[in-house]
């Protein structure tokens, strides 16, 4: 009878046995769920402990150079407290402002002018570090504003010219007295230090750039096209500079990749990931209250593009040993 009863029990499990069986099935998912929650919480705690009190505001991450600056920055500070991409589309700024207030960063890294102006409007106590802004000197810098400029020092560019083209010694330059007289005097001294000669032709609002350049071309080995606002004020005159130089087989050395298609022989610009890294080092120094001598640092790395077809056409002597310094070769 007993055996029979046991058999019955085995065949038809009691409610308690069913519950026990079911609870066994549930216990593992429950343990996993608890573990998951505990681990997630501890990871969050860990993250908040290691995250630097820095917020990145990017003008537009879809722009390659802005994205590269952010990547460079994050190679030094991988866990900033927040990252905001303003982007090209309209966004509710009040939401972004609310988020920034919540984050309450000690430092805001602003990539591009849009991000900088946005951060400046916030009126919070954060220190601003900017980069990827062309001509930062036009900005009014507050006391708690620092940055990395986008322009290489003239000395750096001249040294690279001399390294790549050791026989090119006379370099012509158009500049406006209004904006760049002081810069030109310094560049002239730097050039002399390395055995180069800068031949400058000052231009004003009424100067005919075509005829000014014509005179210069007879007297120089290369033209250095800088970011002078008066020289670059009209698209037509820029096009004319490249056309005239090409006709005279005089190479154009310049500062922006944008001129490669126009016919530049050599472009030396600031290396963007290095700028991001410098901005991160600057942010870390500021966080640790390390005293800064300069508010705006110049880029430490260069990016070089060279058009070999143009080199051959102008009959330039290229130092092939310097090819390991060239980032992009155009054939």
């Amino acid at each position: 009878m007993n055996t029979n009863k046991n058999n019955q029990i085995n065949k038809y499990p009691t409610l308690s046995a069913t519950l026990l069986n079911q609870s066994k099935k549930r216990i593992f998912p429950a343990i996993f769920a608890i573990l998951f929650i505990v681990l997630t919480c501890s990871a969050r705690t860990l993250f908040s402990e290691t995250a630097e009190n820095v917020l990145i505001i990017n003008s537009d991450l879809s722009i390659k150079n802005y994205s590269l600056a952010q990547t460079g920055f994050k190679s030094i500070i991988p866990n900033p407290k927040g990252e905001i991409n303003l982007g090209s589309k309209w966004k509710d700024t009040s939401e972004i402002e609310k988020r920034i207030r919540e984050i309450n960063p000690a430092i805001i890294y602003c990539i591009g002018i849009k991000a900088y102006l946005f951060a400046r409007e916030l009126k919070n106590d954060a220190t601003l570090v900017f980069s990827s802004i062309i001509n930062w000197r036009r900005l009014t810098l507050d006391e708690n504003t620092y940055g990395i400029s986008s322009e290489l020092l003239p000395n750096v560019q001249l040294t690279m010219y001399h390294y790549l083209f050791p026989r090119t010694s006379k370099i012509g330059i158009l500049y406006s007295k209004e904006y760049n007289e002081e810069w030109m005097n310094l560049a002239r001294e730097d050039a002399e230090d390395i055995g180069l000669r800068l031949v400058g032709v000052p231009i004003g609002k009424k100067t005919n750039i075509t005829s000014a350049l014509k005179k210069l071309l007879n007297n120089v080995d290369a033209i250095w096209l800088t970011s002078d606002p008066m020289v670059l004020s009209k698209t037509d005159s820029v096009r004319d500079i490249f056309r005239q130089c090409d006709a005279a087989d005089i190479p154009v050395f310049t500062y922006s990749e944008a001129f490669i298609d126009a016919g530049a022989t050599l472009v030396i610009s600031a290396d963007i990931p290095t700028i991001g890294k410098q901005a991160a080092r600057l942010a870390l120094d500021l966080l640790s209250q390390k005293k800064r001598n300069e508010k705006v640092n110049t880029p430490a790395g260069s990016h070089i593009s060279i058009n070999l077809k143009k080199v051959q056409k102008s009959n330039l002597l290229l130092n092939t040993e310097a090819l390991d310094s060239v980032n992009q070769i155009i054939q």
């Binding site: 290396d271 790395g301 260069s302």
Partner: peptide, 15 residues
């Protein structure tokens, strides 16, 4: 501070 080339490193110190 990682820079692209040796000459960048030397100029970084010099300047």
């Amino acid at each position: 501070l990682s820079v692209p080339k040796d000459i960048d490193a030397l100029m970084s110190v010099g300047f």
